[in-house]
């Protein structure tokens, strides 16, 4: 590890290092937490229900049609022989994320929060 030298720069470096360490421990906890939540979501079938809800909402608001049209554009532009799913994913992911309406995000967030609250109370 870092040698203890009484020098301002070193102290600063140490501080940064500590911060990073703290960050890392947070990250580990975060990952664990996510894993637990994910496990719960799957076990209870809530994940499938959420996916279904999201799918319906996205169809309803026209998101799916928009993205489909965009896919077709990409395929037409590149020619069907020169396009892979990876290409489409790369081109469409940012667009797809951007186009999700705030309402839909909010509703899903609310559902997930409600689910977590309900899980925590058990």
């Amino acid at each position: 590890m870092i040698e203890p030298v009484c020098c301002v720069a070193d102290r600063r470096r140490e501080k940064v290092h500590q911060n990073i360490k703290m960050d890392l421990s947070w990250k580990v906890k975060d990952v664990q937490m996510r894993a637990v939540i994910n496990q719960k979501l799957i076990e209870t079938g809530e994940k499938e229900r959420l996916k279904e809800l999201l799918r319906n909402k996205l169809i309803e608001c026209g998101w799916r049609d928009q993205l489909k049209a965009h896919c077709k554009d990409v395929v037409r532009r590149k020619g069907i022989e020169h396009v892979t799913v990876d290409d489409l994913v790369a081109e469409l992911t940012p667009k797809g994320r951007e186009l999700v309406p705030d309402d839909v995000k909010k509703e899903l967030l609310q559902r997930i929060k409600a689910f977590l609250a309900q899980q925590a109370s058990i």
Partner: peptide, 12 residues
Amino acid sequence: MSFLTLKFPRIA
């Protein structure tokens, strides 16, 4: 990411 399930080449 429902575009993964596109049935593009198949229909075509």
